[in-house]
């Protein structure tokens, strides 16, 4: 079986910081970890960047476990996408898109997303009131 490997960012909240989360990744899901960066902030929120390797199936289960623990998990390299089912085409995002990946289609006034132009700055993710702009993890 081929090994799967990916660099991910895990964000901790103060209530989880005491729990041996990484240990569980090894013990329960047979994953290899390599910590690239780790930091705890003054209010005890933390961020860990690590490379996680193992069988794809175990990797997916491990990520699910992290999310169920209430941790925020993001890929280190991200791709942004527009969830068409959620987008209401208000265009609030367009003011924040410096590469013009997000724009109004004329004359329909629909908001179009061109992933080719996106530089992954993620400002649209914050600007979208209906959370239609998503960061893809896997």
């Amino acid at each position: 079986m081929a090994m799967y490997s990916k660099k991910i960012v895990i964000r901790y909240t103060p209530d989880i910081v005491q729990q041996p989360v990484i240990y569980q990744l090894v013990k329960q899901y047979d994953l290899i970890f390599n910590i690239l960066k780790a930091r705890i902030f003054p209010r005890r929120e933390g961020v860990i960047v690590l490379e996680l390797s193992g069988l794809k199936e175990n990797f997916d289960r491990g990520i699910r476990f992290l999310k169920e623990m209430g941790l925020k998990v993001e890929p280190l390299s991200k791709s942004v996408s527009q969830n068409i089912n959620k987008c209401v085409h208000c265009g609030a995002c367009t003011a924040f898109c410096s590469t013009l990946a997000l724009s109004f289609e004329k004359p329909s006034q629909k908001v179009l997303f061109d992933p080719e132009k996106c530089n992954g700055c993620e400002l649209c993710v914050s600007a979208c009131p209906v959370r239609a702009m998503e960061i893809n993890l896997l």
């Binding site: 085409h89 208000c90 265009g91 609030a92 995002c93 003011a95 009131p129």
Partner: peptide
Amino acid sequence: ITAPLSSYYK
């Protein structure tokens, strides 16, 4: 740069 919060499309 201007952008709306309301949807003209909808």
